[in-house]
């Protein structure tokens, strides 16, 4: 028995030494970031790995904020080369990058994602406005009489919100606060709805934190149900309960059109055309940030970006569109293709 333990201990030490000498190089691209961008970046990475002499990039789904934090933690092999984000990088994040020596960042906008409010096909499709969304889901809403004060949200059914909507209970399944989809939904739909009240809009300049609190706080009395990060689960629940409404990314609607349908918002249905044109209001751009100092050090970064920005990937008929990403218009694509190609770093405002 003692002999076995001695052998194991010896194996362990040699093993440690061996690995310490091993870990000096990295020959694959390391990508981190948004879970919304993850399925698209994964397709590109796989395509890239299979058709070039480079190894397949490693892609971690960390969420936009977490990804940028990792990305900004420094220059060197142990830090990622590319960060995906479902929102633009913030000034504070760029500063943080600077502090850690990451000075030149290339920004590539890769397309759009729509956030849809979808329900089961068993009921007729809804048509709602952002104002309706705000009035249905905010924790506190402006007094119904029109006075400039807030009351706790009294609405129980969609009909209470807007008489043209069906008389069903408000029951919305949405992502938890940790999700980028939630951030975008709150910012685009809720805030958009809140702004239709002029006094709230005015508040933005006078008392920003109060303005944010009004726009961004979702009710907690059971009408909004946090359904976790798994969007497939939300779809299953919508099938089981036709009166419920789910909030998730466009790609899930795209893959499940036989079970669920998207509600039109402000008169626009969620589809490729309306999102790409910018008509559908609850949509957001998707970004990819590249560390310039790593280009040329880690093999394959440039080629990966080239694959991503080629028309067969992000074009109107590209394979990313098949996966549910909404392509940018041609001019925008050209601008970002050139930025990426000549490695133009972003200006920090």
């Amino acid at each position: 028995m003692i002999r076995i333990i001695v052998v194991l201990a010896a194996a362990f030490t040699t093993f440690t030494f061996w690995t310490c000498t091993q870990s000096e190089s990295r020959n694959y691209v390391s990508i981190v970031g948004s879970s919304t961008v993850y399925p698209f970046a994964a397709v590109v990475a796989e395509q890239f790995g299979r058709t070039t002499r480079f190894r397949t990039p490693i892609l971690e789904s960390t969420g936009s904020g977490g990804g940028i934090k990792l990305f900004c933690s420094g220059v060197g092999l142990e830090h990622p080369d590319i960060a995906n984000a479902s929102r633009r990088i913030k000034k504070s994040e760029v500063d943080r990058c600077r502090e850690n020596g990451v000075n030149e960042i290339i920004e590539v906008k890769i397309g759009y994602d729509g956030i849809v409010l979808a329900s089961s096909r068993k009921n007729p499709p809804m048509s709602i406005s952002r104002k309706d969304i705000f009035l249905a889901l905010a924790k506190e809403i402006p007094d119904l009489s029109g006075a400039e004060k807030l009351i706790a949200n009294p609405h129980k059914t969609w009909k209470d919100v807007n008489s043209s909507l069906p008389d069903t209970k408000i029951e919305v399944l949405g992502p938890p606060p940790t999700s980028g989809t939630r951030d975008a939904f709150v910012e685009l739909a809720m805030e958009g709805g809140a702004k239709t009240f002029s006094w709230i809009k005015d508040l933005k300049k006078k008392d920003k934190s109060r303005y944010k609190a009004i726009c961004h706080t979702i009710r907690e009395d059971g009408a909004f149900i946090e359904a976790g990060e798994n969007d497939n689960l939300i779809i299953q629940k919508l099938e089981a309960n036709p009166d419920a409404v789910g909030i998730f990314g466009f790609s899930f609607l795209e893959q499940n059109t036989d079970k669920i349908q998207g509600s039109s918002v402000d008169g626009f249905e969620p589809n490729f055309g309306s999102i790409a044109k910018g008509d559908y209001p609850v949509s957001r751009p998707l970004f990819m940030y590249v560390k310039k100092s790593h280009v040329g050090v880690i093999p394959g970064i440039k080629n990966y970006i080239e694959e991503f920005t080629s028309d067969k990937a992000w074009g109107e008929d590209g394979y990313l569109a098949d996966k549910g990403m909404i392509p940018m218009p041609k001019e925008e694509r050209e601008k970002y293709y050139n930025d990426a190609r000549y490695l133009v770093p972003i200006e920090i405002k």
Partner: peptide, 27 residues
């Protein structure tokens, strides 16, 4: 997301439960 099958202790890789988690979340 790792396509290449890992060949050593330092190759990037994932594990079974993580794979289940990733697939469960795919559209």
């Amino acid at each position: 997301f790792i396509v290449d099958v890992p060949g050593s202790f330092t190759d990037p890789s994932t594990v079974l439960p993580v794979q289940i988690y990733l697939w469960a979340d795919s559209p």
